[in-house]
Every structure is written in structure tokens, then in C-alpha cells.
Amino acid sequence: MTEEIADVGRGISLAYERIGDAGAEPLVLVAGLGQQLHGWPDAFCAQLAGRGYEVVRFDNRDAGRSTHPRFRPPNLLAMLAGRFPPQQYDLRDMAADTAGLLDALELGSAHIAGVSMGGMIAQTVAALYPDRVRTLTSIMSTTGSRLIGRPALSTWRMMGGKPPRSRDEAVEGAVRMFRHIGSHGFPFDEAWVRETAGKGWDRDPSAGGVGRQLAAIMKSGNRTPLLRTITAPALVIHGDRDRMVHPTGGAATARAIPGARLETVRGMGHDLPEGAWSTVLDLIDEHARSSDVPAP
């Protein structure tokens, strides 16, 4: 795994890694809100590569070592009122970043899997760039409707805290959050959370990116009509114990995308616990292999 930087157009550069054999079936993994490329665990990606994929994972804009705009993010009240600064991007812009990464890597199309906000981005790529998506896998994500897929009230309270001011605060905050929203049906891997949060701080200690990414989600609104235009074979994966995106979000996503299949992973919350990997890996792999979409 060697980290590289790609110019994806419109003044945006994305940090990415490729894992697996060059020329294998390309599978692009899109990270969630505030997460960086290593939020997709190394061993999880290695197991996907071992199944015959070239895995691409990357930092979205405003995360990790990718481009960070410098405008101040709107506060939550402004977002809820629909007031955004003129520079504010949305999920369509982030989908264009992903398509631009495919261009930079000379990939005509790929299997796309996204988690949480990454699922929203992956959905939008499939809707706007149908020729670029062989299959879509949307994990623990939702449609943008305010009526479903909402965080638990306890999660909202935790999200309202001040951003970390040090590496130690970032690590301890991640442990508290993932103890809350993580998969209560599986063992909690505190060591991995601490390692990942510390590495994230070392790569990107900036505070504004999460707020701007959240604003991108809010600005995009209800994407249900857009999801109805998706033609790629679609798989929706959701845990039944998700306190960040209620399982109604996954169910609504599957209803909105024509022909989509919903798979519920019992005990899984808003993370990818190692105990659920075999199930999730099998689902992604079987979905990609069952597609009859030819490579361009």
C-alpha cells in the first residue's frame, strides 16, 4: 500500500491507496463522515484484495490529506434553516470527486461501496455517472429524508460536543463515540479505535472538515427522487443496532433504488466490527460477482 495524490479536477486533490493486484476487478471504498481512508481497516481491505479485487480507498475532500477548503462551516442551526455559505459543496460535488478519481486512475468503471456518508456519495455516483458503476453497495446509509434514518437522541447529544483540541482528546472522543454507536452485538475493539483515531489526528488535525462535510449532507436534502434513477445492481447493508443512522434509513434506501436488495446484519451498529467482516465481505463479493455488468 503506497499513498498517492490524484488531481481529480475543479481544484480538488484526493489522497488514495491501491491494495491488491493491478488489473484485478476494481472496487472503490468511500469513507464516511469525518473518516479517512484507513477507516476501512487494513485487514478488511486485504481480505477483499484476496478475493480478487484491486481495492481503492481514499480520503474524501475535507479529510485526511485530501484538499481542505478554508471557509468556515455553518453551524447546525444554519444548516437546519438551509443557510449555507456560497462556497459550500454538496454530495454531488463529492460524487464528482469520486468520478474524477476513476478518471485519474484510468478506471472506466468500478464496483463502488460506501459507508454512512460514503454510502450517500456512492449512491450519488451511481445516479449521476451510471456508466462508471458496475455495482453499488450502500452500507449503514440513508436517503437524506428527515423522516427516517435519524440518529438517536443520545447520539445527537454526543455529536454536539466541542471538537478535540489535541491528539489525546481526539482519541478519547473516538472511544466514547464508538462505544456508543458501535456494534453492541460484537466485541468492542478499543485498541483499533484508539490507533485509528490517533493516526487520523496525525494525518489531519484540522477541525472544520467534519462540519463542512455534514453541511454537504444537509445541503443535499432528500435524495429519494435521485435514488430512483439508479440503474446499477444495488445492495444495501445495515445493522439492526445502529444508533447513528437508524435502520429505517437502510430500508428506505432499498425501497428507493429499483431492484435493490436489503441485507440486515444482526448485532451490527455504525461501524465494521471484525466479527461481522465475514458476513459483510461475503455480501459485497457475492453481489459484485452476481452482476452481469461487463467491464468497459
Rank of each mutant, 00 (worst) to 15 (best):
L262V: 10
G259S: 11
G200R: 14
P26D: 06
A24T: 02
A254Y: 11
L153P: 15
D242H: 10
G259E: 11
T155E: 15
T2Y: 02
V236W: 11
E17G: 03
E169D: 14
A276G: 06
V245K: 04
G118R: 06
V115H: 12
G144P: 06
R243E: 12
P74D: 01
R132F: 02
D59C: 13
R57A: 13
I148N: 07
D204H: 05
S291F: 05
H111N: 13
P294E: 13
V175Y: 09
I12D: 01
D42F: 01
R165E: 15
G34N: 08
E263I: 09
N75F: 09
G118L: 05
T253P: 12
A216E: 12
E172P: 02
F58C: 01
M177N: 04
V280I: 15
L33N: 07
G50A: 12
R212V: 04
H68I: 06
R228N: 01
G200T: 15
D292F: 02
L37K: 10
A207H: 08
A197M: 08
I230M: 02
A15T: 06
G198C: 10
R255K: 14
L128R: 13
A254G: 04
Q123K: 05
A232G: 01
I19E: 07
V293C: 09
E274V: 11
R289F: 07
T98K: 01
L76T: 13
D282C: 00
R255P: 01
G161R: 15
P69R: 04
I284M: 15
D189F: 08
L48S: 12
A110G: 03
H38P: 00
